[in-house]
Every structure is written in structure tokens, then in C-alpha cells.
């Protein structure tokens, strides 16, 4: 039992991806600035950042497509990079396909490249990503969403242990997004596949990621788990009143806080006492304020990101 516990402990602490002071400098522009990331086996790591934050550059360095200026990348606990990358499936930003070949041929070419003998893998992947009706269609004639599905299928050839996906749900329709989410969850929970995924669709990411990293101006500014996000995301209160000036005076004097934001000329967002809407209502009403509406506003991943990334600094 003790041995089993230790084995479980070792597996859970095994780093699939570790970067040390990873940097990329283009002439005078620092695209990635000394990033230290640690992705453990079994994680679904959601990588978040604004456009131009350096996410794709970092992913490309991890995949060996571009050379780092400084630092190093360690895959699968320090394995030889070329051997380690054989266990990785990836897709980087724009759908990269051979436009003159059809869906089946694109997958077949990649299957041959990876040395996979089993030809039925192509057929099962086409069905899995929902491209059965378009299998003979040239990649150049596919819609963006279908191209994205094909790219996901390409990343899954070879049964990778680690998936690195850069904006994989761009262009997918709502049913496609749901299928993708279910696919990732299934791969992670049933087959233990570790996933490193960057996306702008934070609401989607928050539904299945287990850890998050926020990147801004080339730096990793914060890392946290989904549990920690829930703890940090206390609900706020949106209060619609008839006299905003008087309401602010009462909040500052009687509650002793300035942790609020004026949303518009009749709405205040209060970031403390989010669990006590009744008491806030009573306090304002007893001071002659008409409270027209009061509701809880749960801070989600998107709001948290916007706050951390400094887009809404006065939040």
C-alpha cells in the first residue's frame, strides 16, 4: 500500500513540460521574457493572454519550431527532445494543411510520417472529429471550422501523451466546441493525456481546464489552479439605486470600504460583502435610498483575467 502511494505520488508530480528562464528576443523586441512553466502529467493547462502577449511564440519554442534566445525546455522529465516530441500532438494557431490534398490524404501523409502501421487510425479519426462527409474534400475547400477539426485530428494521430493546442476552437461552431470540450475531457480522464491549451474563449476554457497561466507582455504574470480561481473569484453585488451619490457616502461611511466601482449613473458594483445582499439592501433602504435592483455577480475567469492583465485596472 505504501509503495502504491509513493508510485501515485511520483506520477502526480511528474513534469511533462518544464521551462526554465525561457526567452525569445527579436532584435529589440522581447517576445517572451524568462518564462518558468511547470505542467504536470494529467493537467489540462489553460494558457491565457491578450493578442501579442507571446503565447504562440512560447508554444513554438516548446515544440522546437523556433530557437529560444535564452533558457531551456524540458519535456517528459528531461528526455531527448526529438524522442519526447514523438509523444506530442500539436496544432499551432492557423490551420496548417496541405491544401491540394483531401482530408483523408492529409491524415494519411501524417500517419506515414509518424511510422504508424495501422491504416484504420485515419478512418477512426475522421469519424471522431466529424469529418466523415468531407473526407474526399480538398483541404483548401474546407470551411475554417472543418479545417480546425482536421488539424485536431492530425494532432491526435499517434495517440500522443501530451497535446499542445494553440487556439484550437477558433472557427468551430457551438456544437463543434462542445464536441471538442468533451473530447479533451475524455482524453484527459480516460487516457491520462496531458493538455496544454491556449484560447481566447475563456468561458469555454474555464469549463475543463484544471490549471491556468496568464501571460502579459511576454511574462507569465500568474499561475493558479481552478480551485484557487474559485477561491479568488468572490461574488460582487450589482446595486441599482435612485441616488448614486448618497449611496456611495453610505457605503463608505457605514461599511467602511472604497472597494466598489460605479458602473453607470445608477449602478454600483460592490466587491465586498458579496454574500450579504439582504443586509446591503436594508442599509441603503433605511437611509432613504430606493434600491431598484440588487444581484450577485460571480467573477468568472474572463473578469479575473481582465483584472490581472490590467485591461480594467480600476476594477
Amino acid at each position: 500500500m505504501i509503495i502504491l502511494s509513493w508510485e501515485v505520488l511520483i506520477i502526480n508530480t511528474y513534469s511533462i513540460l518544464k521551462t526554465s528562464m525561457l526567452s525569445k528576443v527579436y532584435k529589440k523586441k522581447v517576445a517572451v521574457n524568462r518564462i518558468n512553466i511547470d505542467v504536470r502529467r494529467g493537467d489540462i493547462y489553460g494558457f491565457i493572454g491578450r493578442n501579442g502577449a507571446g503565447k504562440t511564440t512560447l508554444i513554438r519554442m516548446i515544440l522546437g519550431v523556433i530557437c529560444p534566445t535564452e533558457g531551456r525546455v524540458e519535456l517528459f522529465g528531461g528526455e531527448n527532445p526529438d524522442t519526447a516530441r514523438k509523444k506530442i500532438g500539436s496544432s499551432v494557431e492557423n490551420p496548417c494543411l496541405y491544401m491540394w490534398m483531401n482530408v483523408e490524404q492529409n491524415l494519411e501523409a501524417h500517419r506515414i510520417l509518424l511510422g504508424i502501421k495501422d491504416k484504420s487510425v485515419v478512418d477512426s479519426l475522421i469519424k471522431r472529429v466529424g469529418l466523415d462527409v468531407a473526407r474526399k474534400k480538398k483541404a483548401g475547400n474546407l470551411s475554417l471550422g472543418m479545417k480546425q477539426r482536421l488539424v485536431i485530428a492530425l494532432s491526435l494521430i499517434g495517440n500522443p501523451e501530451f497535446l499542445i493546442l494553440d487556439e484550437p476552437i477558433n472557427g468551430l461552431d457551438p456544437s463543434g466546441i462542445k464536441e471538442f470540450r468533451d473530447l479533451i475531457k475524455n482524453l484527459n480522464q480516460k487516457y491520462g493525456v496531458t493538455v496544454f491549451i491556449s484560447s481566447h474563449l475563456l468561458s469555454e476554457l474555464s469549463k475543463f481546464a484544471t490549471r491556468y497561466g496568464i501571460m502579459e507582455d511576454g511574462k507569465l504574470i500568474e499561475e493558479f489552479s481552478s480551485t484557487e480561481l474559485n477561491e479568488r473569484s468572490e461574488p460582487s453585488l450589482l446595486i441599482k439605486v435612485d441616488n448614486i451619490k448618497r449611496s456611495i457616502e453610505i457605503i463608505e461611511k457605514d461599511l467602511g470600504t472604497k472597494n466598489y466601482k460605479i458602473r453607470d449613473d445608477s449602478t454600483i458594483e460592490l466587491f465586498e460583502n458579496g454574500e450579504k445582499p439582504g443586509e446591503i439592501n436594508r442599509l441603503l433602504s433605511s437611509n432613504g435610498i430606493i434600491v431598484e435592483a440588487i444581484s450577485k455577480n460571480q467573477v468568472d475567469l474572463e473578469s479575473y483575467f481582465l483584472k490581472i492583465a490590467g485591461v480594467n485596472k480600476d476594477l
Partner: peptide, 18 residues
Amino acid sequence: VEEFKSGRLAAIVSSGVT
């Protein structure tokens, strides 16, 4: 050039092909 233009070269290199 098609390998560079299509972006597949990045996918090939990241699959462990030297």
C-alpha cells in the same frame, strides 16, 4: 516551398522529425 507556405513543416518538426 509548399512545406513552408502551408505551415506543415512546423507540425512535422514538432512531431519529433529532426
